[in-house]
Simulated scan of single mutants.
Amino acid sequence: MITPRLDITGHALANASRARMLCAMMDGRAWTNKELAADAGVTPQTASAHLHHLEEAGLITQRRSGRCLYHRIAGPDVAAMLEHVARLTPLDHLIRAQRARAAGLAPLRRCYNHLAGAIAVALCDALIMKGALQRVDEGLIAQRSPLWARLGVVVPEGASPRPSLARPCLDWSERRDHIGGALGQAILEHALAEDWIQPAGSRRGLRLTAHGRNTLTTVIGCDPDGLSHA
């Protein structure tokens, strides 16, 4: 029997500076050593050691372009794992600053390559209620529905009946699912292109525009103003 080396992953995560770097890279972009060092509040030399550790653990990948070495999350599976771990982290009086920062990301943010936060959860619930998505066991399947055309979202080829293309991702702030996978990525890219959402505050933070709010309300029947933050 092969035992998973959870200790390697756990050791890579068991450092505040490395954790901050991973959180920064959860915006889906590639970052330089200097950028990650500044974000984590460490020297570039220390950042290099941490990034080497994260790469050896399989959590990030590196790519050189010109004179710069770029670092990014290794893929959607790693991003999903980090998002799930984030919801299990303790929120007590010792980390009030982190809790305040998390609260700022709760309404709407990027979860690697798809939308997360209370608004994303409400969107997922509304699409299920309208029949555009269907829960099957622990997965989601995109259904043939005129709602996708009304939204202008192109459902990835073969999204039904392949649940992996509309993967549920458990939201750390809401403790309910938002939409991950290829369909989640398609929704995020379309929302940005159509100016439903715009970057805000934190590098992962997003804000819903008036156009986006109107689309969610009139097309899907999703009420962003009526969201509760559990």
Rank of each mutant, 00 (worst) to 15 (best):
I2V: 14
T3Y: 02
P4H: 13
P4N: 13
R5S: 06
R5L: 09
L6M: 10
D7F: 10
G10V: 01
A12S: 13
N15C: 06
S17E: 15
R18P: 13
A19V: 09
R20M: 14
C23K: 07
A24T: 06
M25G: 11
G28Q: 14
R29Y: 07
A30S: 15
E35D: 12
E35Q: 15
A38H: 07
D39V: 01
P44K: 15
T46E: 09
T46S: 14
A47H: 05
A47K: 03
A47S: 14
A49W: 04
H50R: 12
L51N: 14
H52Q: 06
H53G: 02
H53W: 02
E55K: 08
A57I: 00
L59Q: 08
L59A: 03
I60G: 02
I60R: 01
R63E: 14
R64C: 10
S65V: 10
L69T: 08
Y70T: 00
Y70M: 02
R72A: 02
I73H: 02
I73R: 03
A74P: 05
P76M: 03
A80D: 15
L82T: 10
H84W: 06
H84P: 00
V85M: 11
A86G: 05
L88M: 10
P90T: 10
L91A: 15
L91F: 09
H93N: 12
H93D: 15
H93M: 15
L94S: 14
R96A: 11
A97I: 03
A100I: 07
A100D: 15
R101A: 13
R101F: 09
A103Q: 14
G104C: 09
A106K: 01
P107Q: 10
P107Y: 12
R110S: 11
Y112R: 05
G117M: 10
A118I: 01
A122Q: 12
A126C: 10
K130F: 05
A132V: 12
V136W: 09
G139M: 11
Q143V: 00
P146R: 08
W148I: 02
A149W: 00
R150F: 00
R150C: 03
L151V: 03
G152P: 06
G152W: 05
V154M: 10
V155A: 08
V155T: 08
V155F: 01
E157S: 06
E157K: 15
E157F: 12
G158N: 11
G158R: 07
A159E: 04
P161L: 08
P161D: 13
L165K: 15
L165V: 00
R167T: 12
P168I: 03
W172V: 04
S173H: 14
R175D: 13
R176A: 15
R176P: 02
H178V: 14
I179V: 10
G180N: 08
G181V: 01
A182K: 15
G184D: 06
I187M: 12
L188Q: 03
H190S: 00
H190D: 00
H190A: 01
D195C: 08
Q198N: 04
Q198P: 05
A200V: 02
G201S: 10
L206F: 04
T209E: 00
T209I: 01
N214I: 02
V219C: 09
I220Y: 09
G221D: 06
C222D: 11
G226D: 12
G226T: 11
H229V: 07
